[in-house]
């Protein structure tokens, strides 16, 4: 199996504050990975290292065998929708087309528009194309950002907390959508919610300054406790009426 992402002893600090220490793991192509950890544990930093927005202080990162900067246009990044100015006057189509932007070009080509249309169809927002981004619900905005990432023709999809602030029904739809995407590309999903899409996940990358990688079945209460530094119990959604 080919390697999608390889971290070789990577450390990263913000100023003097260590965020990641000796992260050393490999993600295979086609894997569905959940990146899990407490807030401030370094999940988003890990994502920014993969995208080449930060450079590691030590260690080496390879994405599909190349540097993150060389490969970052093959990564479809889906940031948290809540970070956007809700009053910005752009339509859904405008946002999705941003996945096709270049430094020098005279407007979007037929091909760009086709890719954008296909991406919108694939996440079920084809009928919203001319709607203003600000008029959408949280779940719809999230799907627009996924469509924008898909319009870039990514080999790796990287989603940052896609289910933050969305309700259970949308979470369910989202997991069905991710199931489809899993067939086509490597998916990295940053989340603090282990229950979400647990059936799809091949491996879990636990990030709390140190990074561990586990197959989903190998996750134990001990791992979780170590990750969150507190006494947490696993609530298994797949087993009903369990006595705790």
């Amino acid at each position: 199996m080919n390697t999608a992402i390889n971290f070789g002893n990577v450390s990263f600090k913000y100023g003097s504050l260590p965020v990641l220490e000796n992260a050393d793991f490999t993600i295979n192509q086609g894997d569905f990975i959940s990146i899990l950890g407490p807030n401030g544990g370094g999940k988003t930093t890990l994502a920014k290292l993969i995208l080449g927005l930060h450079d590691p202080d030590s260690g080496r990162i390879a994405v599909n065998g190349k540097t993150p900067r060389q490969m970052r246009d093959k990564i479809g990044y889906v940031p948290q929708y809540s970070l956007f100015d809700p009053n910005l006057p752009v339509s859904v189509k405008d946002v999705v087309l941003m996945g096709r932007i270049r430094n020098f070009f005279v407007g979007y080509s037929r091909r760009d528009k086709d890719y954008a249309a296909k991406a919108m169809e694939s996440v079920g927002i084809g009928d919203l194309s001319t709607t203003s981004f600000s008029a959408l619900s949280g779940g719809q905005r999230q799907r627009v950002l996924i469509a924008r990432a898909l319009a870039t023709e990514p080999e790796i999809l990287l989603l940052d907390e896609p289910t933050a602030n969305v309700d259970a029904a949308i979470e369910y739809k989202m997991s069905a959508m991710l199931k489809e995407l899993k067939k086509k590309m490597t998916v990295l999903l940053i989340t603090h919610d282990l229950g979400f899409v647990s059936e799809l996940v091949d491996k879990v990358v636990c990030v709390n300054r140190r990074v561990h990688i586990h197959p989903t079945s190998g996750i134990t209460e001990e791992h979780i406790r170590e990750l969150y530094n507190e006494n947490m119990k696993i609530v298994r959604h797949d087993i009903k009426e369990e006595k705790i």
Binding site: L51, G52, L53, R72, D73, I75, Y77, P79, F84, D85, L88, V90, D94, V95, L97, M98, G99, I101, R102, N103, F105, V106, G107, Y108, R148, T152
Partner: peptide, 23 residues
């Protein structure tokens, strides 16, 4: 006229534009 879409992209999401290779 020339840079309408680039200005739009950096206004909406500067980080994403940078990942797409926009200066």
């Amino acid at each position: 006229f020339l840079f309408y879409y680039q200005f739009q992209a950096i206004t909406f999401d500067e980080e994403f534009a940078r990942i797409r290779g926009i200066k």
